[in-house]
Amino acid sequence: MLPKKRRTLPRPAILLELVCHALMGTALGLSVRLLLTFVDNFGIARLIAHSSTPHQTFAILIGMVTLPFSVGATLTGFVFTMMEER
């Protein structure tokens, strides 16, 4: 009996699942960023408003809050998908 050959290319469904996980993480990161800036208990909105370049500071905040959520959700989705494949 011949041993099973491993697939060299991932299935397109796996890539679609990873994209979905990345989008879910991005949405979660954006919602956390919205909470941080619009609920001014932390004073972040005041810090952004009084900075020398508020638009750039706001854009950096969006990136720094959203990116870890997106990457984390993608990696978690990858692990879950690989566990299902086994």
Rank of each mutant, 00 (worst) to 15 (best):
S31W: 12
S51E: 01
P10Q: 08
P3E: 14
R11D: 10
L35I: 07
S52W: 07
H55W: 06
L2K: 14
T74K: 08
G72T: 09
I44H: 00
V39G: 02
F58P: 00
L30F: 07
R86G: 13
P10L: 07
P10W: 09
E85Y: 02
P10S: 07
R6A: 14
P3M: 08
A49L: 03
C20T: 09
G29D: 00
F58A: 08
H21K: 09
F42M: 05
V32H: 00
L28M: 11
T57K: 04
A73W: 09
L28G: 02
A49S: 04
F80S: 10
V65E: 11
F58T: 04
L15W: 03
I44C: 01
S70L: 15
I60W: 15
R11K: 07
A73E: 05
P54D: 06
M83S: 03
R7T: 10
T37D: 01
H55S: 10
H21M: 13
M24C: 14
L35K: 05
F58G: 02
R11N: 04
I14R: 11
L2E: 15
K4N: 06
F78H: 11
E85T: 03
L35T: 04
A59G: 03
K4V: 05
R7A: 13
P68G: 14
L47Q: 09
E85N: 03
L30Q: 08
H21L: 08
T26K: 13
S52V: 06
N41Y: 13
T76A: 15
T66C: 11
E85P: 00
P3W: 08
R6G: 11
M24N: 07
S31L: 12
R7E: 13
I62P: 00
L28R: 10
F69D: 02
F38S: 07
V71G: 04
V65F: 06
I44Y: 01
E85M: 08
L9N: 07
G29C: 04
A27K: 00
G77W: 02
L23A: 15
C20A: 14
A59L: 13
L2W: 06
F58N: 07
L30H: 05
V39F: 06
V19C: 13
R7N: 12
L34T: 07
M24S: 12
E17L: 02
T76G: 11
D40W: 00
I48M: 01
Q56N: 06
M64P: 03
P3R: 07
R86Q: 14
A13F: 04
F78N: 14
A27M: 06
L61R: 01
L18I: 01
I60T: 15
V71E: 04
P10D: 08
V79Q: 14
S70K: 15
V39E: 08
H21S: 12
C20E: 12
V32D: 01
L61E: 02
V32Y: 01
G72K: 09
G72H: 10
P54M: 10
H55D: 08
A59R: 05
I60F: 15
L28E: 11
F42I: 02
L9A: 09
L75Q: 10
T74G: 12
S51G: 02
H21R: 12
L16W: 09
S31N: 05
V79W: 12
G29A: 05
M24L: 13
L67Y: 12
L9C: 11
I48Q: 01
A22G: 12
T8K: 12
L23T: 10
P12Y: 06
L75C: 14
F80K: 13
A13P: 01
E85R: 06
T26A: 15
G43N: 02
